[in-house]
Nucleic acid binder design. Structure first.
Lengths: 239, 239
DNA sequence: TTGCTACGTTGACCTAAATCAAGAGTCTGA
DNA sequence: TCAGACTCTTGATTTAGGTCAACGTAGCAA
């Protein structure tokens, strides 16, 4: 790995202080019920603080035992399925506040940092058994799993469409999942996005270029895209 | 709809008596904890017995409020995403014992009978709030949602592979989800399967034919395929 | 600054799967 | 028994996107 392995302690500290808020925010008030102490107990039960990963570092291996779940504190995390021939599908991206690693049997996906990222580790067993005594935690887990299931379904539906639609819908999803503003920061590489959309980097690049030429988006520095004023997939002709 | 709308009462009765067992079986013993009375209470709380649907009937509309969850008693149910242009993606198939309809906001998928099917309705609210007082039910729901999430991820990964791999992996999944025997009954039409795999019916047909010619499968009557003795996707050259 | 490496873009060409078209089974109802 | 409607199969042709190749650019270390 070319990127150096030094840990960004500054990130860890500042971001980790926000973890509780992240959780609350992503639940849109409905889970304010979930007291900080619940999460504190969960964290202390498994004793693993936030860990920093450099871009492309592996957080959990395809084939490993799936003893942990993960919460993204900062950066972008990807879940990949790696095939025998070395090809790869990026099954999902996770943004700050997302909980991942649901599959309770042998880890079927490789979990990797798509950008430099800070991740919280949760031991699965304690977390799940704590949910048995804590209905609001149980509810939170079910809601998060359900939400991710919906996203996975949308993603699968997206994959049977043409290249332009895939890119447009991907950008829309990213927009709504991040700030919701017209500025979308793609932390991940084109290769990651292409593998997520079932395209090649060349096709992705061409598609983005053509969206730019049609005025739907503008490129900005640092893997950032500016979506046109009234961006909406409905206003762009999809097949 | 060409198929008549008569209800198969015989089916309803015999199958509905099996519903509880179906739930237990599909949880492979681990959820024997879940007493019958739990489910009985859930069913009685929402007062809706098993309902029969003929092939292609719509069980819940894309856009409807998602007040219900469904459990397949018999037959095959499909979840479809329907696009503006009329195209369709079959996001998932559900077999007897499967619980579906997780998405708690507006129904984003159309739920339809892929074969004649008998389905149990659960009112979402009572079911979820009951889980708050019943840890084993909460655990069951989380496990089922998680399991489906894993399937959705596998499915998404499958969609970035070539036609032969998609078909082979689909048959493998179906085999392991149904009896586990070498006889796979595809209740659903080729059109359904093609829309699930992101292929056309022509490509699907050609792929099945070529698998048959290579000796991997044999066709039998009634949409049934016989998988070769030591069927395994690993023993078939996938790209 | 220079050189290096990873990442992204663009063009030319090719191929897997879509599309178009024609039949062949299969089921149902009259 | 036959007619009509689905459903599936097979062949010919087209095309969207993949592959191969070359080049541009940004970030970084020396």
């Amino acid at each position: 790995m070319a990127t150096s392995d030094r840990i960004h302690h500054a990130d860890v500290r500042t971001e980790s202080n926000c973890v509780f808020d992240v959780i609350k925010d992503s639940r849109s008030g409905r889970h304010a019920v979930l007291a900080h102490s619940d999460i504190r107990r969960a964290i202390s039960a498994l004793q693993s603080g936030p860990v920093s990963f450099c871009r492309n570092n592996v957080i959990a291996c395809q084939g490993d035992d799936a003893d942990y779940m993960f919460m993204v504190v900062s950066g972008v995390v990807r879940a990949c399925k790696i095939f025998q021939n070395g090809d790869r599908a990026v099954v999902a991206f996770y943004l700050p506040g997302d909980l991942l690693g649901w599959c309770n049997n042998t880890q079927s996906l490789s979990i990797e940092a798509a950008t430099n990222a800070v991740v919280l580790f949760f031991k699965r067993r304690p977390l799940v058994s704590m949910a048995a005594h804590n209905p609001s935690l149980a509810r939170l887990l079910l809601d998060l799993a359900t939400k991710e299931l919906c996203r996975a379904h949308e993603h699968a539906a997206l994959l049977s469409r043409d290249a332009k639609s895939r890119v447009v819908l991907f950008l829309s999803e990213l927009k709504s999942r991040s700030a919701g503003k017209d500025r979308v920061v793609l932390g991940m590489s084109h290769q990651d996005i292409a593998d997520h959309l079932g395209l090649t980097i060349e096709t992705l690049s061409r598609t983005i270029t053509s969206l730019e030429r049609s005025g739907a988006i503008r490129r900005a520095a640092g893997r950032t895209l500016l979506l046109r004023d009234a961006w909406s997939p409905l206003r762009i002709t999809l097949t």
